[in-house]
């Protein structure tokens, strides 16, 4: 089932990042994936102290530097120039992944190609024969980080649902995703399946359901919001 995507409705990229940032707790150690997830750092509400980890060996990562202060030996996992915040530390790759695999990182935010209603994530390969497979640290992050948030458009560019009964692409991890932030809704992965916690302004539950590859449950928050 493919439903044509209407333009300019729901949340934009910044708003998705902003909404996700509300759920980053004060005092947490956080790893942000490449793309929209990186933008989350800009929107963490004031008054919360969050420490960012990048798997190439830096804890306490700061924002991008001014152009004349770029250091090619100070980069993030996306190989972009970054800065260090006060209290930052450098370490080698095995220590960096011990932080991930040893369950020391609290929250990871990453992108998705597909998420299943059991919380399976596919985000590294289409499995096509001529694709160059590349996994990076994604499998380590989903296996080791305590809370996994996914930010993704609700549908592919061609309108296919990315939230599905079961992933057709090769898995990154099984039953690993906790919450999904799309352009249309915030959706929790529960034992009963996908539960909608919040809808983007002007978006109805049915509209989201039509663009989802499996059954959605309305969360208690929706009834509450309707009563306000």
């Amino acid at each position: 089932m493919s439903v044509a995507k209407q333009q300019n409705i729901g949340w934009g990229r910044e708003e998705m990042a902003k909404r996700t940032a509300l759920d980053i707790p004060d005092g947490s150690y956080v790893n942000l994936g490449i793309g929209i997830p990186e933008m989350v750092a800009q929107y963490v509400p004031e008054g919360r102290e969050v420490i960012y980890h990048t798997e190439n060996g830096l804890l306490g990562m700061g924002p991008a530097p001014a152009e004349d202060e770029v250091d090619p030996e100070l980069i993030n996992a996306g190989k972009k120039a970054v800065t260090v915040n006060p209290g930052a530390s450098f370490f080698h790759h095995a220590d960096s992944f011990a932080m991930i695999r040893g369950q020391h990182i609290d929250v990871c935010v990453l992108g998705a190609m597909q998420v299943s209603e059991q919380g399976d994530l596919a985000n590294w390969s289409t499995g096509e024969a001529d694709a160059i497979p590349a996994v990076g640290g994604a499998m380590d992050l989903v296996a080791g980080v305590k809370t996994i948030y996914v930010i993704t458009q609700h549908c592919t560019k061609s309108g296919e649902p990315k939230l599905v009964e079961s992933c057709s692409y090769p898995l990154t991890g099984k039953a690993v995703v906790d919450r999904i932030y799309t352009d249309l809704a915030v959706i929790d992965v529960t034992a009963d399946g996908f539960m909608v916690a919040e809808l983007a302004p002007g978006i109805s539950f049915d509209y989201v359901q039509q663009r989802t590859g499996c059954k959605l449950l309305p969360g208690p928050q929706l009834a509450e919001a309707a009563n306000h």
Binding site: H93, S96, F97, I100, V135, M139, G144
Partner: peptide
């Protein structure tokens, strides 16, 4: 793609830990 080089793909943390 032309089959002239072999690839062993390893998750990054597994690669670091194997080393």
């Amino acid at each position: 793609r032309s089959g002239k080089i072999e690839l062993e793909l390893v998750p990054q943390g597994t690669l670091a830990e194997r080393i």
